[in-house]
Design a protein around this nucleic acid. Structure first.
Ligand code: MN
Ligand code: MN
Ligand code: MN
Ligand code: MN
Lengths: 152, 152
DNA sequence: GACGATTATTAGCCTTGTCTAATATTTGGC
DNA sequence: GCCAAATATTAGACAAGGCTAATAATCGTC
């Protein structure tokens, strides 16, 4: 027996837990939530820079509905992750990676929003729901949303 | 000057931050995320009880894709919040409140899922996206989803 | 250019939600 | 009924993300 493996192990599957099919969906949601705050921040920062020429913590705090210290801590994480650059007491800038992410998020946000409006939702509810839904829409779903939003 | 108020304060608004209109959307998303895990758990517990007669931590862990200790800690919070009852080393039961929440979540999950399928999405992606989207769908949006899913 | 108001940061606290390692309990097979 | 395997719990670590209070820096105005 040259290489009698003896493991009746399930068909490989590197290092996951038993992984009920359902588990994959929940893991995907947790993954989305890990990226969510960064996505909303870079998107907002891009908008502030576009609208006012700069993104200041005080404005980020007002738009996000959190306190300035919460913004400071989050910005530190974004800088650590290479999405922004910042100097003490100065406004915030996007790195190339941050700008790329922001554009991707803006595109996705826009599609989801237009989709909800097209479905017949009022503007305020559409914006409210889009802010959460956008992070849980696969590329495949996004394509269907876009097609529906743009249908004649 | 009997009662010269001197506060040019904004039109009341109890105790919120300056609250850009946008901030409300983000606050709503944060609120949804605070309820999310409880919702997924009670929904899953209800399903396990229906399918197998009981909800055991080991099965919850497999379906959620997390470790048993994570389940244990979450179940403690659910018990603290009055959604389940449990005895050590025994399976888990829903309270009336937990059962009510589970039914509400099942209804919502089902509508979102049927909507995505109706839109043309494959089953696996639909289930994946629905697991996240369901927590960010207002009652108003849900009604539109249901109408679309059930349209002739 | 000094000074008060605004803005930013720091320090420190708290909860949630994940994990691993160790321990306790239950259960099924003999 | 015993014992090993399966299951559950506990202990403890850690990161994220929110907060308040205190401090530091900047800015606008005179
Ligand atoms: Mn968002
Ligand atoms: Mn879910
Ligand atoms: Mn669900
Ligand atoms: Mn979410």
């Amino acid at each position: 027996m040259v290489h009698d493996d003896l493991q009746p192990s399930p068909p490989a599957a590197s290092d996951e837990r038993p992984s009920d099919p359902r588990a994959g969906a929940f893991q995907g949601v947790r993954e989305a939530h890990r990226n969510e705050l960064a996505e909303d921040y870079v998107e907002l920062i891009a908008e502030l820079i576009h609208a006012r020429g700069e993104a200041r913590p005080v404005d980020i705090a007002a738009k996000m509905g959190v306190t300035p210290p919460s913004v400071a801590k989050t910005l530190d994480r974004l800088a650590r992750d290479g999405l922004i650059t910042r100097a003490r007491y100065r406004s915030v800038f996007l790195t190339d990676a941050g700008r790329a992410l922001a554009e991707e998020c803006q595109r996705r946000h826009d599609i989801v929003l237009r989709f909800l409006l097209r479905l017949g939702l009022d503007a305020e509810t559409a914006e409210h729901d889009a802010e959460g839904i956008e992070h849980h829409v696969s590329e495949r779903t996004l394509a269907l949303f876009a097609a529906f939003a743009d249908r004649s």
